[in-house]
Structures are given as C-alpha cells and as structure tokens.
C-alpha cells in the first residue's frame, strides 16, 4: 500500500539539537488542509515556557499550539509538547501530560511520545525522527515500527547532529531515510 493511501491517526515528529529549523521548514511547507493531527516532541529548555510555539507559528501553514492535559488531538493542528512535561497520546485521541521522572535526561521524552502513539494507534501512527544529540526517540520509533506504523528517519547527512537518527538506525530498519524536503513531500502526500 502506498503511504498516501494509509489513513494515519497521528503523525509524531521528534527532534532535539538543530531540529527547530527543520520543523519550522516542514511546517512552513505543509499543504493547507493537512488532514492528520501532528504531535511535535522537541527537546527544549525546562524553564523557558514561551517562545518556541510562537516561533514555530511564524511560518507554519497549520496552527501550532501547546496542549493542556486531556486536550483532544485535532486534524491539521500541530501540538507541541510543553516544556518540563512528558506528552502521551491516548486511545481516545487525547493528550495526557505528566511530570514523571526524566527519561534519557529529557522531559518531554520523545521515546514516551512515540511509544504511547504506537500503543494507542498501532499501524495508524507515522513517526519521524529528526536531528538530535542524544538517543531519546530511537526506541520509541522502533515501537512504532514494531506495531506496523510507518517510520521515517532524517538522513544523517542532512542533520546538524546525527546522534539521534543514528541511534534509531542502529536499532532497526525504518521505512524510509529522507532529507527534510523529502519528508515534506511525504507529509503532503497525505493531503487529499
């Protein structure tokens, strides 16, 4: 089955060092009417609560917001994991937040966001891992793959810091290894 024929219930994008510009580029090139809820789990400073969502909204073609606990996922809306909270995707298409211990030195943890989406939506999950400086996200992305979801790793040659994609590639074989421009094309293929 072509990826454009798959009916995803959520797209989860994870990234760390260097990922802001890539995410910003992706959001700025999405086609209007992007039909799937998008979750962004990016490593960020714990004590800086504002600025990131505003920065992403500057160029984004879809609204970017920080969800409150128990808020529903919305098609065509990007939800950014708030600073100092883990974000989980639930069976009922809501977001839950948590202040549990850091995972891989991170809160939000990308592993947690991916794994929860995989558990909730199985093959209807699309996970994308971007540039980053630690291994958080690798195991969670593998969980998406294990549940027959679709997995994309940013081509390490295009990363500011390739540790995170390389950690994923060491763990499993993703469906695709793509440049940021190619990632945009895949996402836009989900429209219509």
């Amino acid at each position: 089955m072509e990826i454009s024929d798959r009916k995803f219930k959520v797209v989860v994008i994870g990234g760390s060092a260097g990922s802001f510009s890539i995410v910003s580029k992706i959001l700025s090139q999405l086609n209007p009417g992007f039909p799937v809820p998008l979750v962004l789990c990016l490593h960020r400073l714990k004590h800086v609560r504002s600025g990131l969502v505003e920065g992403l909204n500057l160029k984004s073609k879809i609204p970017v917001m920080e969800p409150f606990d128990k808020e529903k996922l919305k098609p065509g809306v990007a939800m950014l994991a708030p600073s100092n909270y883990h974000l989980f995707v639930e069976f009922d298409s809501t977001i839950s937040l948590s202040t549990e211990d850091v995972h891989n030195h991170s809160r939000p943890s990308i592993d947690y966001a991916y794994s929860s989406a995989a558990y909730a939506f199985r093959e209807k999950t699309l996970g994308i891992i971007l540039t980053g400086a630690n291994k958080d996200g690798a195991k969670g992305l593998k969980d998406i793959g294990d549940k027959k979801g679709y997995t994309i790793v940013q081509d390490p040659a295009t990363c500011d810091v390739e540790t995170m994609p390389q950690a994923a590639l060491k763990l499993f074989e993703p469906d695709e290894i793509l440049t940021p421009d190619e990632i945009v094309k895949v996402l836009n293929s989900l429209v219509g």
């Binding site: 609560r49 920080e66 409150f68 128990k70 909270y85 937040l97």
Partner: peptide, 9 residues
Amino acid sequence: FLAIGVKET
C-alpha cells in the same frame, strides 16, 4: 485560592 499545574485545566 486554588493553584493547579500550568498545563492543567
């Protein structure tokens, strides 16, 4: 007064 977490409702 009541205080809850900044991302709670």
